[in-house]
Simulated assay, not measured.
Amino acid sequence: MAALSSGITGVLTSVVLVGGPLGVLGLVLGVVGLRTAKRTGTGRAVAIAALVTSFLAIAMSVLLAVGLAWYANHTQECYRPDSFRQYTQCVQQQLSGS
């Protein structure tokens, strides 16, 4: 159950990059749960659900981190604007290639 909770919380918090470490924790606990389920014969479905949600949390966090790094790389000249309007204009110019 802890593995599934970690996986679900990881998916929900992957937007703020906290989901990655929680996903890893859920992945480890899910593997332990899967081994326990093999030995006892119960809980296999919960362990598999935990592994899936944990993997999703890790994948979403990695994709978000890559996206943020790409965005920061393409808009680094826009970080010192005098106004928000100048910032948005700069970002639009940088992303459109103008």
Rank of each mutant, 00 (worst) to 15 (best):
M1G: 13
M1P: 09
A2E: 14
A2L: 12
L4Y: 06
I8H: 06
T9F: 14
T9V: 14
L12E: 12
S14K: 06
V15S: 15
V15W: 15
V15H: 14
G20M: 10
G20E: 01
P21Q: 06
G26L: 04
G26T: 07
G26V: 05
L27R: 07
G30I: 01
G30F: 00
G30L: 02
V31D: 11
G33F: 01
G33I: 00
L34W: 01
L34A: 10
R35K: 15
A37R: 06
A37E: 01
R39E: 14
G41V: 04
R44T: 12
R44Q: 12
A45T: 10
A45P: 04
A45C: 10
A45F: 13
A47T: 01
A49V: 04
A49I: 03
A50F: 00
L51A: 01
V52C: 01
A57D: 04
S61P: 03
V62R: 00
V66W: 01
G67S: 05
N73W: 11
H74I: 13
T75Y: 03
E77V: 12
E77N: 14
R80N: 15
P81N: 03
P81W: 06
S83G: 05
R85C: 09
Q86T: 08
Y87G: 07
T88E: 10
T88P: 08
Q89L: 11
C90G: 05
C90F: 05
V91P: 03
V91M: 07
G97W: 04
G97Y: 00
S98L: 11
